[in-house]
């Protein structure tokens, strides 16, 4: 039993990790908490749902369409809502991000209604039996996709020039600009990648828990943020580690402590983590300049 709880925890955690990657990359580069990130997951799910069910297209087209849409959405959000606020107070940026999150939820509410829709799996993977443990196909799919994405992303950031530009901007925006890095482009690219990952996470999540409604993204979004903080915000391996840790903790506390209290436990972990080690497991400590 423990093994299967653990496996489903890892698979949930892999989804959190994908979402947390978006949070952590944006936080590292734009130094802002993109509250709307969780709702991009929901948008990704709805787009895939519309393409595959309403239009009757193939699963792969739905997947691709959803990723493209969310990528464009991420860039648009950054351009329209966040870019004018660069240099404004943190409070203003945070309130705007909350506004964008609310806007996405309510637009979805107006278009699709408040009732949640049944989401059919786009890609079906058969389940595998190893000894007495059955691994569901969804779990294999989720973990497999996440591992591939994480490897590609790590390679992209460490090997490509655009990735180095990202690292440079997150280190020191001004210095990067002086070295000829196009900061605006880099920030847009970060939002694009983060939102594309959110679309993938949204589809994986809807495959695992086959329901989608306007508020689907809210809770996973908050929990993925907790995961990002847990692993150390701004750190990409930290987001992966934190995501898996939060997923496993949530599933095990559901199984062994209480289903109703699992959310409270996850939130309590965030508070404890921030008190004990505010920089997270892999985060760097930043010295404050006066």
């Amino acid at each position: 039993m423990f093994i299967s709880y653990l496996l489903s925890g890892i698979s949930l955690g892999a989804i959190y990790a994908l979402i947390a990657l978006g949070y952590t990359m944006v936080y590292g580069i734009a130094k802002m908490l993109n509250f709307a990130h969780g709702d991009v997951i929901m948008v990704g799910g709805y787009i895939a749902f519309t393409i595959s069910v309403t239009l009757g297209a193939d699963g792969w087209i739905a997947l691709l369409g959803s990723i493209i849409f969310c990528t464009l959405l991420g860039i648009t959000i950054e351009r329209v809502a966040y870019k004018p606020l660069r240099g404004a107070s943190k409070l203003s940026v945070l309130i705007t991000a909350i506004g964008v999150s609310y806007l996405l939820q309510n637009v979805a509410l107006l278009i699709f209604g408040s009732a949640s829709r049944n989401f059919q799996a786009l890609i079906v993977v058969p389940s595998v039996e190893i000894g007495s443990v059955t691994i569901p196909g969804n779990t294999i799919l989720t973990i497999g996709v996440s591992v591939v994405i994480m490897i590609v992303l790590t390679l992209f950031i460490n090997k490509s020039s655009a990735g180095s530009a990202m690292l440079a901007v997150s280190e020191d925006k001004g210095a990067a600009q002086l070295m000829g890095v196009n900061v605006n482009k880099t920030i847009s690219l970060t939002f694009a990648i983060g939102s594309g990952l959110a679309a993938v996470a949204g589809i994986l999540m809807c495959t695992q828990y086959p329901n989608i409604g306007p508020y689907t993204g809210q809770m996973p979004g908050i929990k993925a943020f907790i995961a990002a903080v847990f692993g150390g915000i701004g750190s990409i391996p930290g987001a992966m580690l934190g995501g898996i840790a939060i997923g496993v903790i949530e599933n095990l506390s559901k199984a062994y402590i209480s289903t109703q209290l699992s959310d409270a436990i996850t939130f309590a972990i965030l508070i404890i983590m921030l008190l004990v080690k505010p920089t997270g497991i892999l985060g760097k400590k930043l010295n404050e300049k006066v």
Partner: peptide, 20 residues
Amino acid sequence: PILRLRGDYLAIVTLAFGEI
């Protein structure tokens, strides 16, 4: 405990508190 935090962190922790 939480007022040692600032900005984004404080916001997210108060959110967590409300949910708890």
